[in-house]
Amino acid sequence: MEVGTKEPLYETVIMAGFGGQGLMFIGKLLAYSAMKTGKHVTWIPSYGPEMRGGTANCTIVISDEEIGSPVITSPKALIIMNNPSLEAFEPRLQSQGRLFLNSSLITRQPTRSDIEVITIPANDIAVEVGEKRTANMVMLGAYISSVNVVSKQNLLEGLKEFFAKKTQFLQVNTTAFERGFTHSKH
């Protein structure tokens, strides 16, 4: 590809799972880190009572250009943390899109064959790194390693800012992210 004819960046991802799995958090972290590198970003959550204990999801758009719709019908990627979310969102993934599945919790198989499926035993890895609540960071690491939207470096800088007041959790979250990042490299 010649220099100067590079397609402008336009990435869309929906992250979905149970409330409390930290999807809102990694969504914000991703958007924030991308913002820091000068990108246009939007983050839009599902909101309301379904977030308390039920399923939660958020949609992130990252773009070189001004963002029109923050609501995405067919995203380029999905980060899916539980069975109901797989059922709800798999049909919406773009053809050739990437589906990141938390195989520690998802027992169903994806049904589509026109998509790339990346499975990560996120909860198992999280337990291994010593903090079971970091499964979200494992998933984000996997996403960042295969989708060229922000560099690992930029994301870890964003993470530092997010944990500025809770530094005791920074290391374990960083480790979880790194594990997800390397797990996905194949």
Binding site: V41, T42, W43, I44, I67, P70
Partner: peptide, 10 residues
């Protein structure tokens, strides 16, 4: 609307 309120942007 609800999206404008809930959405995050720079």
């Amino acid at each position: 609307d609800g999206y404008l309120g809930q959405m995050m942007e720079p």
